[in-house]
């Protein structure tokens, strides 16, 4: 069962890197996380396995996918463009260093790593009890600090996302372009077909748009 879980994890991890489509990468990540959950079950940490699935697969990767879909970056990327100069050679060096480090540890510590469980004693009543005791007993201060940190993060996100009530939000460049385009189109339509209710309304809209865009121009300059 360990081998099966390891295979799931490793193939998932490879998939995350190899897949060209970000959504596929995210799905492989889910596969890896499920493999880790299986490892937890193997260690009789059922609660951790469930939490692994609920939190990581159920919330975090969903958010990844959500962002990928909403930002529309779910296209296959052009790999010829290097976003940050010197990033790739550096990645090769650091990756090689990491593998080297792990191999060294493996070679040096052959007598220590045997695959056996490090603690073979019974876990007490259940893993939930043990986790609760250490989180809410021994490490309660760290736990509460983490809680405060998360609260600050949430409040910060809300403050950043919220529009200030006093100064109006500047309209983005694209919206400005669209306004100009709409204005030109509307003016053309009034020029070609004069008279009639519909075109008269178009004309009114044109003037409105014109004012808006003029304001924007002032605000930007």
């Amino acid at each position: 069962m360990f081998i099966a879980a390891a295979l799931i994890i490793l193939s998932g991890a490879m998939g995350v890197i190899v897949a060209r489509n970000p959504v596929h990468s995210a799905l492989f990540l889910v596969q890896t996380l499920f493999g880790v959950a299986a490892l937890f079950v193997l260690q009789e940490a059922h609660f951790l396995a469930a939490v692994q699935v609920i939190v990581y697969a159920g919330a975090i990767v969903i958010l990844f996918l959500f962002v990928i879909m909403l930002l529309g970056v779910d296209k296959v990327e052009d790999l010829n463009v290097e976003p940050i100069a010197g990033q790739r050679p550096l990645a090769v060096v650091i990756g090689a260093a990491g593998i080297g480090l792990m191999l060294t540890v493996l070679v040096i510590a052959t007598d220590v790593i045997s695959g056996a469980h490090s603690s073979t004693g019974p876990l007490g009543e259940s893993d939930i009890d043990e986790i609760a005791k250490s989180i809410f007993g021994d490490y309660v201060f760290a736990f509460q600090l983490t809680g405060v940190l998360l609260t600050i993060a949430v409040v910060g996100a809300v403050v950043l996302a919220r529009r200030a009530a006093t100064d109006p939000e500047p309209i983005p460049e694209s919206a400005y372009d669209e306004l100009v385009a709409a204005q030109i189109a509307a003016r053309e339509s009034t020029l070609t077909a004069e008279g009639g209710d519909g075109t008269a309304q178009d004309g009114e809209e044109t003037t409105d748009d014109g004012e808006d865009s003029a304001d924007d121009g002032e605000a930007e300059t």
């Binding site: 469930a50 609920i54 159920g58």
Partner: peptide, 8 residues
């Protein structure tokens, strides 16, 4: 928790 995991 299995139910919660499955619903996610």
């Amino acid at each position: 928790l299995l139910f919660l995991a499955m619903s996610s």
